[in-house]
């Protein structure tokens, strides 16, 4: 066997080696598989509400019911504060943004275990799956956000104390940030579940708990000022607070808090992607 000149790899279109740098993410390949991402999105939309009576209407009913429930339990029974905002609007703004993040997280968390059958039979860049999840959820978010705008318009017309302002231009950043955060957390969880299945049991419970610590039901303003920095470490708090501040004009969020949140998000995202690309290479040996 003649050793080929190992340096000269230019003639080869693909080299499979035991190791690849941890930062290596095959973006170009993912781009080549963009049609697959879109077909996954289409599949998820077609399949989700097949054989349900109300069909796509669930996209609207689901946040509506959650909002009503929160408004009843916390607004009517517990009489928590809502920064002086109409309860429904307050809760719905939280629910709509939280849903987007949580759906990205929980569905991405299922990437490896849920697709083991496909992954074991054919190669395609594994990141196409989480990417398609983010896109699917983004479409859902747009629909639910529309519902929120309708409600906002209704209260606005009624003269309720809501103050949408120029800061709404920050919305794309918030959406991207939630996507990165959901993707990052989901990637971490899905990578770890290939080794420890127990984690998948915890995901649902964990996100639920996380929601209660994320300004969805209680505004940051109810937290004493000297403790707020702890809550700000939870990147979802500034995101939801900023969302409310921009669309409803109430809240105590500050720009540095959003910066902290952005930094934490980027760290989680990079860590998640690193872990994901490590695990995707030979997770088939462990599941």
């Amino acid at each position: 066997m003649v050793e080929p000149a190992s340096e000269d790899l230019r003639g080869w279109s693909k080299v499979l080696t035991p190791d690849r740098p941890w930062w290596h993410i095959p973006w170009r390949e993912i781009w080549e598989y963009r049609d697959l991402v879109l077909l996954f999105v289409k599949r998820d939309f077609t399949a989700t509400y097949k054989q349900t009576f109300l069909g796509p209407l669930w996209y609207l009913l689901q946040p509506l019911f959650t909002t009503l429930m929160l408004a009843f339990v916390f607004g009517v029974l517990a009489k928590t504060q809502t920064d002086g905002l109409p309860r429904l609007l307050f809760f719905m703004s939280g629910v709509v943004s939280w849903n987007y993040f949580a759906d990205c997280l929980t569905k991405t968390a299922n990437t490896f275990t849920g697709n083991a059958g496909i992954f074991g039979k054919v190669y395609f860049p594994r990141l196409t799956v989480p990417l398609s999840i983010v896109i699917t959820n983004m479409i859902t978010f747009v629909v639910q956000f529309g519902l929120f705008l309708l409600l906002l318009g209704y209260y606005w017309a009624k003269g309720a104390p809501v103050f949408p302002n120029y800061r709404v231009i920050i919305l794309p950043l918030l959406v991207v940030q939630m996507a990165l955060l959901g993707l990052g957390m989901g990637a971490i969880v899905s990578s770890l579940t290939t080794k420890w299945r127990d984690l998948s049991m915890l995901v649902g419970f964990g996100t639920q708990l996380w929601m209660y610590a994320s300004s969805v039901v209680l505004p940051l303003s109810v937290i004493p000022e000297k403790w707020r920095w702890i809550f700000v470490l939870n990147p979802m708090v500034p995101i939801i607070e900023t969302f409310r501040f921009a669309f409803l004009g109430r809240g105590v969020v500050e720009i540095w808090q959003l910066m902290v949140s952005l930094a934490v998000t980027i760290v989680i995202f990079v860590f998640g992607m690193t872990l994901f690309s490590r695990v995707e290479r030979d997770f088939m040996d462990t599941v």
Binding site: K14, V15, L16, T17, F119, G120, K121, D282, D285
Partner: peptide, 13 residues
């Protein structure tokens, strides 16, 4: 490419 090698490599054109 379902799993990666432990040692050695594969070159593909």
């Amino acid at each position: 490419q379902i799993t990666s090698p432990t040692e050695g490599r594969v070159l593909i054109k």
